[in-house]
Amino acid sequence: MITPAYCQTMARYNAWQNKGLRDMIAEMDRDALYLDRGAFFGSIMGTLNHLLWGDTIWISRFDGGQGPDPSIKDSVDFTPTPAVWAGERFKMDARIKLWAERVSAIDLVGELSWHSGAMNRDFTRPIALCVMQLFNHQTHHRGQVHAMLTAMGQRPNDTDLPFMPEDF
């Protein structure tokens, strides 16, 4: 279904896209970042926090490391400030890249079982599908952030995979 090369490419893509967002967020007005814009998680920061929270849950299922404590309803407040978010986002992107560099084809075979607090039930799904969910979830919510930024007159970086710099 997927390969280690897919994981590595998507981990690089994730880091590239989030670098662009970190750079933009650092320059933006705090009120603009927290304004409820009608997105599923409200604001730009609410959406970015939810995405970081989701990445933390998924990667902890893959690498066995620390996962988040708060529930999905608390995910919009996962970090207290844009600066803290930027630091945590940088570390999470490095964690995802490190996992992707180490993953082997056999690691992507089999099933993963977990309890979903959001759905309040247990799940078992193919590991490869869960890995695709990690990267799909990122793209989905970054797309929402991209739309919110564009609507407010900002110009986010290009999002096309073929234009990803080689150094990511």
Rank of each mutant, 00 (worst) to 15 (best):
H141P: 09
P68I: 10
M119W: 09
Q138Y: 03
I57A: 13
G38F: 00
H115I: 06
M10T: 14
D63I: 10
Q138C: 12
G87P: 04
T81N: 13
G110D: 00
R102S: 08
P126H: 00
A118R: 08
L48T: 12
A83C: 12
T150Q: 08
D93K: 01
I96Y: 01
W99R: 04
A100S: 10
K91D: 13
M119T: 01
E111N: 01
T56S: 12
F123I: 01
R121H: 06
G110L: 00
D93V: 06
A105L: 08
E27C: 15
F41Q: 04
G38R: 02
M148S: 02
R155Y: 06
A118I: 08
C7Y: 12
Q154E: 14
G20D: 12
A105V: 14
T139Y: 13
I44G: 03
G42W: 07
A100D: 07
N136C: 09
L161V: 11
D74Q: 11
E111G: 00
P165L: 01
T159N: 07
I57E: 02
R37D: 02
V76I: 05
E166T: 13
G54W: 11
A39H: 05
M28S: 08
N120D: 10
M45S: 00
W53S: 00
Q17F: 15
N49M: 14
F123Y: 13
D77R: 09
Y13F: 11
W99I: 05
V131H: 04
I25G: 03
F62N: 12
G38H: 04
G143Q: 02
M148Q: 10
L48C: 05
A15Y: 14
F41V: 07
P162Y: 14
D122F: 09
S60V: 05
W114N: 06
D29N: 10
G67C: 14
T79M: 08
S71M: 14
D69Y: 03
I72Y: 10
N157F: 05
D93A: 02
M10L: 07
P82Q: 09
T3F: 15
I96S: 03
